[in-house]
Amino acid sequence: MYVSNHLSLVEQHRQDAYSISERTAQFLAAGGAVAHLPSPPRNPLPPKRSAKIDPDTILKRRKPPISRAERNALRKLAEAL
């Protein structure tokens, strides 16, 4: 027979479970009602991105790499020095 390693954890929280069930019974006996609401979506959609572009923002763009011909020309200039 298999015995869970978490049995002592269950025993530790048993008193809390009894307390919660007693308080729930008192709430319902006093005229309280339990509302069953729909659950929230699991993965909420991210907020929409703004289409506004701030004119003060400076975009950092990467310069295109030099071509093979430009690289060869620079190499020839370097050798000439």
Rank of each mutant, 00 (worst) to 15 (best):
H6N: 15
L45I: 11
L45H: 05
D56C: 03
R71V: 05
S50A: 01
A78R: 13
R42V: 09
I53R: 07
I66E: 01
V3T: 11
R23T: 05
G32D: 00
L37K: 06
A51H: 10
S67V: 09
S19Q: 09
L9T: 13
K48Q: 11
G31N: 02
K48R: 14
K52E: 08
S39G: 11
A29G: 04
R71K: 15
G32L: 03
T57Y: 05
Y18L: 13
V3C: 00
N43V: 10
T57E: 08
Q12A: 06
V3E: 03
P40N: 07
S67G: 12
M1Y: 08
I66C: 00
A33D: 09
D54Q: 06
K48D: 01
R62I: 06
H6A: 11
Y18S: 08
S19W: 01
R42P: 00
A80V: 04
N43D: 14
R68H: 03
H6S: 12
D54F: 00
V34E: 07
P47M: 04
E22C: 13
L45G: 02
R75H: 12
K60V: 12
R71M: 07
L59G: 01
A29Q: 11
K76R: 15
A80F: 12
N72G: 09
A73I: 14
E22Q: 14
A25Y: 07
R23S: 08
R23N: 10
I20T: 10
A29V: 11
F27G: 01
V34M: 11
V3M: 08
S50Y: 03
V34P: 03
S4I: 05
S67H: 06
K76W: 06
A80H: 06
R23W: 02
L37G: 01
F27A: 04
N72K: 15
Y18H: 12
P64Q: 02
L9S: 10
K48H: 05
P46R: 03
E79T: 09
V34L: 14
L37I: 13
H6V: 12
K76S: 13
E70Q: 15
Q12G: 01
L59D: 01
E11F: 00
H13T: 11
A25L: 13
